[in-house]
Design a protein around this nucleic acid. Structure first.
Length: 212
DNA sequence: CACCAGGCAAGTA
DNA sequence: TACTTGCATGGT
């Protein structure tokens, strides 16, 4: 699966961001949201020089919500961002780098304890901000594996994650590329209601031919 | 016009 | 435990 995807799409420059902090903010903003809208929100913050932990920590929730408005769910996400800032400031004295240098398991556990950060957001942060090898599972991953009859609907987030991590080298770059490629093939060929399996590089995988 | 996008939390059965 | 709903904008 990885080889087919990589041959078809090539390397992805995935999860752009100039800093771990920017990547983590993006990870919260992109929840159920198109990345282009997240970029508008992040650009708003950059334009006024507020894209830092110290600066954003000072903003009121309402003002923060205004800046991130284009990302949608702005009131909810402003609260979630503030929960995240509060944790780093309170538990790590605002030292994000030290926080990210912990082992992946400890990092993940603490991220999940923050209200507003679920499994996918936490794992995205561990992989793309901390650079540690953990596999990110998303809705596309779930849908693609079901359509190719590799799993059934009973598989949850953790089971899918184990499926990949038990069968792959623990390699940050591989996990980074793989997740990016899954999102790409999902966006282009494996949409919810308009799958285009005829040109999909995964057609015929696992012996399942050109299903609709 | 309808549907969806790089989810999560809270509420309900 | 397992669904369902609210959150909300911008693109296709």
């Amino acid at each position: 699966m990885y080889e087919r995807l990589h041959a078809h799409f090539g390397a992805r420059d995935w999860w752009p961001g100039d800093s771990p902090f920017e990547i983590m903010v993006g990870a919260i903003l992109t929840q159920n949201t198109n990345w282009k809208n997240v970029e508008r929100a992040i650009d708003n913050l950059k334009r006024v020089g507020l894209l830092s932990l110290s600066a954003m920590s000072e903003l009121s929730q309402d003002l923060l919500a205004e800046y991130i408005r284009p990302a949608g769910y702005y009131n909810i996400k402003a609260g979630r961002l503030r929960n995240f800032f509060h944790f780093i400031n309170k538990e790590w004295d605002g030292d994000l780098d030290s926080f990210l240098q912990q082992p992946a398991a400890a990092l993940r556990e603490q991220l999940l304890s923050i209200k507003g950060i679920g499994p996918e957001t936490a794992d995205s942060m561990v992989l793309y901000a901390a650079g540690q090898p953990i596999f990110v599972v998303d809705a596309y991953t779930h849908r693609i594996l079901i359509r190719h009859e590799i799993i059934d609907e009973s598989f949850g987030y953790h089971e899918i994650q184990e499926l990949f991590m038990d069968n792959l080298e623990e390699d940050t770059l591989l996990f980074n590329e793989y997740h990016a490629l899954i999102v790409q093939v999902g966006k282009v060929y494996c949409k919810k209601s308009k799958p285009d399996c005829s040109h999909c590089p995964l057609a015929g995988l696992n012996g399942v031919e050109r299903q609709q």
